[in-house]
Measured scan of single mutants.
Amino acid sequence: MTLTLTVPPGAKVRVRITNENGETTEIEVEPGETVTITLPAGSTVRVEVEVVDPDGRKRTETFTLKP
């Protein structure tokens, strides 16, 4: 399973991925970048995406991906 994120110009994104064992991976994606994350097959993962807009506003979306 893959997750692809494209960050709009001016925004910053931090992604936290937590697996079933509670292990967390965190990455930051710079403005204008596209990143593809390969998620472990057969695992349920929690993905938290934090977006910081150019004006400093933050918003966070959290979702769970199941196999």
Rank of each mutant, 00 (worst) to 15 (best):
V29E: 12
M1R: 03
E20Y: 08
E33S: 13
V35L: 06
T44P: 09
E48M: 03
T36K: 10
I17Q: 10
V52K: 02
V51A: 01
E23G: 09
T2L: 14
I27W: 11
T25H: 03
E50L: 01
K12A: 08
F63N: 15
I37Q: 13
E28G: 13
T4D: 07
E33L: 09
R14T: 11
V13L: 01
D55T: 02
S43G: 11
V15T: 08
V29M: 12
G56I: 00
K66F: 15
K58N: 01
E33Y: 09
V13K: 01
R16P: 01
V29A: 03
P9C: 09
V13M: 04
R59E: 01
V52G: 01
T34K: 10
V35P: 09
A41Y: 13
L65P: 14
A41T: 10
T44V: 06
I37W: 13
P67K: 01
L65Q: 00
E30N: 07
P40N: 10
L65Y: 14
R59C: 14
P54L: 05
E23Y: 08
V7K: 01
R14Q: 10
V47F: 02
T34M: 11
V47T: 00
V49R: 01
E28F: 03
I17L: 10
L39H: 05
V45E: 02
V49G: 00
I17R: 10
T2W: 15
T34V: 13
N21W: 08
D53P: 00
V51Q: 02
T60N: 01
T2R: 05
T18K: 04
E61A: 14
I27Y: 13
V51N: 01
E28N: 09
V52A: 01
T18N: 09
V47C: 02
E23H: 09
G56E: 00
G32K: 12
V15L: 09
V13S: 04
V49H: 00
K12W: 03
L5T: 07
G42N: 11
G42I: 11
L3Q: 03
N21G: 10
R57S: 06
V29S: 09
K66M: 15
T6G: 12
E61H: 14
P54G: 04
T64A: 01
T6I: 13
P31T: 12
V7M: 05
E26Y: 03
L5Q: 02
T44S: 06
E30H: 11
T34W: 14
P8F: 13
M1N: 06
T4W: 14
V13H: 00
R16W: 11
L5S: 04
V15H: 01
G10E: 11
P40E: 12
G22R: 08
P31E: 09
E20K: 04
T36C: 14
I27F: 11
K66G: 15
V49K: 01
T36W: 12
E50T: 12
V15S: 02
S43W: 10
L65I: 14
T34Y: 12
E33A: 10
R14P: 02
V49N: 00
T64F: 15
T4V: 10
P31C: 14
T36L: 13
R57C: 10
P8Y: 14
D55F: 04
K12D: 11
P54A: 10
G10Q: 10
T25P: 08
L3R: 03
T44D: 04
R14F: 09
K12S: 11
K66V: 15
D55K: 02
T64V: 14
E20G: 07
G56D: 00
E50F: 01
V13P: 05
V15Y: 04
G22T: 12
S43E: 15
N21P: 11
E50A: 02
G42F: 10
S43I: 12
T2D: 05
V13A: 03
V49I: 12
T44I: 09
T62N: 02
D53E: 04
T64W: 15
G22A: 09
E30W: 06
P67E: 04
V45F: 08
V47L: 02
R14W: 11
E26F: 04
I37S: 13
L65R: 00
E48C: 03
T2S: 05
S43V: 13
R46P: 01
F63L: 10
T36V: 11
T6W: 14
T25N: 04
T38F: 13
M1F: 13
T18W: 10
E33N: 08
T64Q: 03
P40Q: 12
P31D: 09
V35I: 05
R14L: 05
G42S: 12
T36Q: 04
R14K: 07
R16Q: 05
V47E: 00
V47W: 00
G42Q: 09
V13F: 01
K12I: 05
T6N: 10
V51K: 01
T44C: 14
E48G: 01
R59M: 02
S43Y: 06
E28Q: 11
P8I: 13
E48L: 03
T6L: 14
E61Y: 15
P9R: 07
A11V: 01
L39E: 08
T44K: 02
E30L: 05
S43P: 06
L5W: 09
K66W: 15
R57T: 09
G32L: 05
E23D: 07
G32V: 15
S43T: 08
T25A: 05
V15K: 01
L5P: 01
R14S: 12
T24C: 12
V47M: 03
L3H: 07
T34D: 09
V52F: 02
L3W: 11
P40T: 12
G56V: 00
P8M: 13
K58D: 00
T38N: 09
E48T: 06
R57H: 04
P9A: 11
T6D: 14
T36R: 06
P9D: 08
V29N: 14
R14G: 11
V45S: 02
E26P: 13
T25D: 05
R14Y: 07
K12H: 08
T60Y: 10
E48D: 04
L5G: 06
V49D: 00
T6E: 12
T44R: 02
I17D: 03
V35N: 07
T36S: 09
G10T: 03
P9S: 10
V29F: 11
V47Y: 00
K12Q: 10
E23N: 09
T60P: 00
N19H: 05
K66N: 13
E50I: 04
G56T: 00
V7P: 01
I27V: 08
V7L: 12
V29R: 10
M1I: 12
V51I: 09
T62F: 05
I37Y: 07
A11Y: 03
P67H: 14
P9V: 07
A41D: 06
T44A: 08
I27D: 07
D55S: 04
E20P: 05
P8W: 14
E48K: 01
G32A: 12
T38Y: 08
L65W: 15
L39V: 04
N19Y: 10
T38E: 09
G22S: 10
D55A: 02
L3M: 04
E50D: 09
G32W: 13
P54M: 05
P9M: 05
D55N: 03
N19P: 14
V49W: 01
E28A: 09
T38C: 14
V52H: 02
N21R: 08
E50C: 03
E33D: 10
P67M: 15
P67S: 12
